[in-house]
Design a protein around this nucleic acid. Sequence first.
DNA 1: GCCCGTATGGGTAGTACCACCCATCTTCGG
DNA 2: CCGAAGATGGGTGGTACTACCCATACGGGC
Lengths: 216, 216
Amino acid sequence: MTIRVLLADDHPVVRNGLKGVIEREPDFEVVAEANDGAEAVVLGMRPEVDLAVLDVAMPRMTGLQAVEELARRRPGLRTLVLSMYDADQYVLAAIRAGASGYVLKSVADTDIVGACRAVMRGDSFVFPESTPQALRDQGELVRRGRGSKSDETLTARELEVLKLVAEGRTSREIAETLVISIKTVDRHRANIKEKLGARDRVDLTRYAIRRGLVEP
Amino acid sequence: MTIRVLLADDHPVVRNGLKGVIEREPDFEVVAEANDGAEAVVLGMRPEVDLAVLDVAMPRMTGLQAVEELARRRPGLRTLVLSMYDADQYVLAAIRAGASGYVLKSVADTDIVGACRAVMRGDSFVFPESTPQALRDQGELVRRGRGSKSDETLTARELEVLKLVAEGRTSREIAETLVISIKTVDRHRANIKEKLGARDRVDLTRYAIRRGLVEP
DNA sequence: GCCCGTATGGGTAGTACCACCCATCTTCGG
DNA sequence: CCGAAGATGGGTGGTACTACCCATACGGGC
């Protein structure tokens, strides 16, 4: 029984590395590759895909959005999220989005395969283990129904504002760009900060970069 | 005559992808792999290395710093910088640091090999070609001696302040951390902004992330 | 000796940001 | 139809940041 994998990463060389690692295993096979999140959703709907391995930061649609979409439209599919960063909040966000597992890109090749296997066994996998158990418990709780609605979901308008903030625009400039009042921009930014638990524009900037909304 | 390559990237899976791409060519051979910039400098000093391929963002020492160091200590070595971002200023910074070439991670595998070959032929290679010719000319000029000293060089103290700014600390917090007055923190930040041509803390944050001083 | 860069610190003013309060209007789902 | 959520906008006050001015001290190099 071979496990058929979808790889999604916007860097061909990374996809290639993953492909090499995964196809070295006799019972794994890469059956599809996506360049961005939107493509991943389309390809992930194919019935022959058993497991989707997605990078977080991708153009058009982030890996987390793709996971959310796939979890909704094809609940049986297992999803493993790859990320560069290991802060708790990213892990939590991924689990909340419905990911089956979360692995850092900085781990060894064999650990990535191990994560794939764990996820296919049905475990909710997080690596490295250094991540607090409490967090994983919370993730489990959330993932088992209850609150799958994360309060981190930004509206389309908020994403527009966040993008401009992270590009270094002032409230005045953003207001001119979006043709709304400065107060409304401030209001949006305040709402975003509250949703994300951010302190100031610097926090928002780092968040936007992690999400791939803007380049650093 | 085989070309012996040093790969430097902090993500094993990326190194693996590069290795696969490069060793598919009969006249290329990967003879060393580094996990960070500091390691890359050590391994790059080995005489059997002909070409060093380095990622920009790495722990301990960035790819650009490693290139600078290697260019100084082993001028004959060819260096190719890999980056996620294609803004002109990053390209220019890489060339200024002494890199022989600059390639985006988002290009196709074959183009990376092509870049390696171009660099080994002695070309100063920049990809994609969309980069303005004027920029490459300027890069050439700078690389041929003249002004290798950029006014972007921050002092040790300024780097400390920049790091804290990019972590989202306020002036007051930074002042307490470094045990100096708020005014001095402001003074440092103003100097940094002027050196980097940044407008505000958001710009500084993005810069610090590009340099790998902080995680996003 | 003198200048230059670096680090330190002060003053003053204007602007941006942030944290609260408040409201209206639309849209969408139960 | 009504309520919730989203987008819009206003007010007020406090804090942080930014842009200027200024000075002192220390070290190294010409």
